[in-house]
Design a protein around this nucleic acid. Structure first.
Lengths: 259, 259
DNA sequence: CCTTGTTGTTTCCATATTAGAAACAATGTA
DNA sequence: TACATTGTTTCTAATATGGAAACAACAAGG
């Protein structure tokens, strides 16, 4: 990773923002400074600036900081193109299978659910847009990993998994699995992330040929027969072909005339 | 507004991020620099740093920038405490009325939908979390404005409305309207934001007594009778009371013991 | 195959801005 | 009253940044 000359102030500020996660949604200045090993005053000024823009706000009573509503607005604009184009196909898939359909992309060392259309049934898998996962398990995540360089996958896992995690202790097992996925062009998962959940996932390629996302159908294992799984795969392949064609044409139009 | 000593680098960076909106979701460096009257190199370094953290990404083909998937993850955490607590009551309201229920908060010069539970009916109002609106129209927005200082409302509107907008030409009309809302404790709107849409909204107060959000029911006017509107208001007032009690107790517990 | 007009990216240096320690203020606690 | 906690502000050396201008990578069109 060559450093492309980052701005230190901003870089630190984004590291500050990154510590607000699901397990730790609120922070005090001192606590946060200690956690990141930064001077208190720097953290304080950073948070004050974020607060001025609505990215964080300070609870009036406890004076602790939380992420602010501005992020909700920004998230609406984030990643629309791919998700917008894919939505129609995803809705069709959800309609045809009555199961939840997810579109997943890579972000740094993890994957992120970029878009989801939930199953109409009561017993359904939730598709939480923005949810992050690691590369080593789950059909949608393994598909993405299968088309990355192996070293990148390993680095990413090492950054998020404990050092004594089974996958890291015998990485070759995962590596062979990913190679198999890459060569067959899809992945299945049976209860890997959550018990009783089955998923099938295929890669989606952009106009330059790289995998930009994975498209997945996910549902309760009790509803999925052997043949059902094959049908999901067929439907996914069809949808993938149509989606890639639309993405390709779109890009081509851009390249030709520039908008 | 006294300036609380902001970090210039971060302040500018957040202004850069803010220009990515629904109408203009992608930017080139030069274009963006010109728009904000900043040096190209500054914008470029800012975007590169954002990109390194997944806040933006660069289209491979056109090399233009868009908001990235990291924002989706952050938005998940940004759902404030308030939205989490309110969800149950909102779901109950949606169940009872079969209409869409929204929770709206103030962010800077506008309002933001912080949480929504959509109507189960086919013809329904969408509740887009993250959607921004101005203070001068719509029940949920006017309720929030009614409990702000009038000058702040006016400033906010001037920042977002054209100078020759009707509301700004005769502000006293809006002012009296907001005063009426504040004294009666709720707002109704009939087709103010969108034709054929009726909404009723009440304020939600935090433990310190300030209005933290507005809670609204919104649906197609064709389904709402005069009496139906009153029923909405009653249900909202009930839900508001329960919600405020839970918020108050929660804060109190924090204050007492700090955990 | 050169121009010319675009991009995004990098270099460079004076200097304005920030990093960081330490003092400060505002709380709640013994 | 003293004591520990907070979050906030001050201050200065030093460095990271701002900004102009050069650079590189493309297209378009002569």
């Amino acid at each position: 990773m060559a450093k492309p000359a980052l701005l230190q102030t901003l870089d630190r500020a984004l590291r500050v923002l990154a510590v607000f996660d699901w397990e730790h949604p609120e922070w005090g200045v001192t606590e946060l400074a200690h956690h990141l090993q930064m001077p208190k005053s720097v953290v304080q000024k950073t948070l004050a600036t974020f607060a001025h823009h609505g990215f964080v706000y300070q609870e009036p009573v406890r004076r602790r900081y939380r992420l602010g509503p501005r992020l909700l607005s920004l998230a609406q604009v984030a990643q629309p193109e791919l998700a917008r184009v894919a939505h129609r196909y995803m809705a069709n898939l959800a309609e045809a299978t009555k199961e939840t359909v997810k579109l997943t992309v890579v972000d740094g060392n993890q994957t992120v659910i970029a878009h989801a259309v939930e199953s109409p049934q009561s017993l359904r898998m939730t598709g939480r847009v923005g949810e992050r996962n690691d590369f080593h398990r789950g059909a949608s995540n393994k598909v993405l990993a299968a088309y990355m360089k192996w070293e990148a996958v390993l680095d990413a896992l090492q950054a998020h998994l404990p050092a004594d995690h089974p996958v890291l202790l015998e990485p070759d097992r995962l590596r062979r699995e990913l190679e198999a996925i890459a060569s067959q062009g899809y992945a299945e998962s049976h209860g890997e992330v959550e018990e009783g959940v089955t998923a099938v996932s295929v890669p989606v390629r952009g106009p330059l040929g790289e995998v930009e996302a994975s498209l997945s159908i996910v549902g309760p294992s009790v509803r999925v027969t052997e043949g059902g799984c094959r049908r999901w795969l067929e439907l996914l392949q069809q949808a993938r072909a149509l989606l890639e064609r639309e993405l390709g044409l779109k890009e081509e139009a851009f390249v030709r005339k520039g908008g």
